[in-house]
Design a protein around this nucleic acid. Sequence first.
RNA 1: GGUCCGUUCGUCUAACGGUUAGGACGCCAGGUUUUCAUCCUGGUAAUAGGGGUUCGAUUCCCCUACGGACUACCA
Length: 506
Amino acid sequence: MKEVRVRFAPSPTGPLHIGGVRTALYNYLFAKKHGGKFLLRIEDTDQTRFVPGAEEYIIEALNWCGVSYDEGVGIGGPHAPYRQSERKDLYRKYADQLVNEGHAYYAFDTAEDLELMRERLKARGVATPQYDVFTRGEMVNSLTLSPDETAERLKSGDTYVIRILIPENEEVLVNDLIRGEVKVHSSRLDDKVLFKSDGMPTYHMANIVDDHLMEITHVIRGEEWLPSAPLHVLLYRYLGWEPPLFAHLPLLLKPDGNGKLSKRDGDRLGFPVFPLRWTDPVSGEVSSGYRESGYLPDAFVNMLALLGWNPGTEQEIFSMEELTAAFSLERVGKSGSKFDPEKAKWFNHHYLSNSNTNDVAQLLATILAGKGIKAPETLILQVSDIVKERAVLIPDLWEQSWFFFQAPEIFEEKTVQKFWKPDSPALLVKIIDLLKTIDNFSVENVDLAVKTFIHDNELGMGVVMNTLRLVLVGGSFGPGVAAIISLLGKDEAVIRIDKAIKRLSL
RNA sequence: GGUCCGUUCGUCUAACGGUUAGGACGCCAGGUUUUCAUCCUGGUAAUAGGGGUUCGAUUCCCCUACGGACUACCA
């Protein structure tokens, strides 16, 4: 059996959004599953839409997700180059071949000509004006011009495009791995431009040539390409090539209402639609990314994988290896999936709280370093251990633990109102004395000592604990009080209690 | 408008002719608890509508409705 070769072929016109990431992911999983190759090709045939930084962004995003490619831009491979603008010279001969064999033709119409044609047809009541079997006869092209005239125009340097000559009357079949057989009548297809007047091929031409040359076996791409798939089938046939197998993935929809997920939805609903933060080079507008928002790549990938695909079992937590083993195109759904930001958070929380404490400590250490805070490694480790299950996003690690690294400057008014009573200072003085008697300052020991103290003095658990919490962290938040006291250490705990007594008693 | 694709709880989805239509997120309730979370238990909630085919339709066919994609010398 032939080696499976698939590609992800984005256009560098901006940041990759999560729908694109998912397409890349499915290609990757499919390739790995079948022991094949996954390649990255950059489709930059439209020079006017080039956006600086977009290509780098795409590569960085794939790397962050752990979606690595075997051949492509940046790493090369047996079919280099992988950037279409650098393959420019390759395409022309195939366009010529199509013209020579009567499957394509030269068209000299100007933009104005085309506009006029559309208006004319609309006036005539034609709903969809197209350059097709019905209209090509009245346009300026090598079909309507004499061979001499055509040759003359070509020679004199008239600008022209090359259009495919769509056959007049036949059903074009597209066999889709996800949707089955899709039939379209050729009379509904238009004579798409294959070769532009600027000397570049269009997507349609370039993608067929490259997929063939790069020996692509499966084209896995978004559903938005389904309507042009018949055209691609025709091109393979006319070029005499065996077409790859097609799989058109369902779309990612916006969380509310309907429609394709877009950049705007993220802004509007407050969640990232991009894997990484992106700053538009022209407007300077910033779009948030999953990475910068504090998502773990594994959680992000897991969440994305399940949007449109399911394993057929009730498993929902998957490592990349497990995804690879379980993935199949047969289990990709047909209908679009609404993106659910809440579920994304759930995944991240799950991954964070189930992460190895050492890994979490790394994340916390990075945050601390960014704030210029120095802390003992063991403390970071201990804090990470008790705080990881309380964090949904990475920044929560800090939100839940900052008081371990710096003493509170202020005391929450609300909590003071509720727990600071006239007899609080006396209580806390006793607690200080108590803490001083504890030799082994482990969480368990501190917990036992405090609870015994509460019991022996017939005090209320809530009152004592919350008062302690208030003076230790400055409010009503954080992990268990015993853990806080233990990790702070005897000296620091006593200092904080003592200071608070003085400040709050004023 | 035309072409194509689609339609199971609010959301992601399972069930590939026979199930009390299952799971997850969310939500609600209860439990654990020193705060807030977590965690545990339970609950809520769906086959778009109408025709067929069949002993039997979520499942197969048709129609309707609704939704989406596409409709550039953009990908």
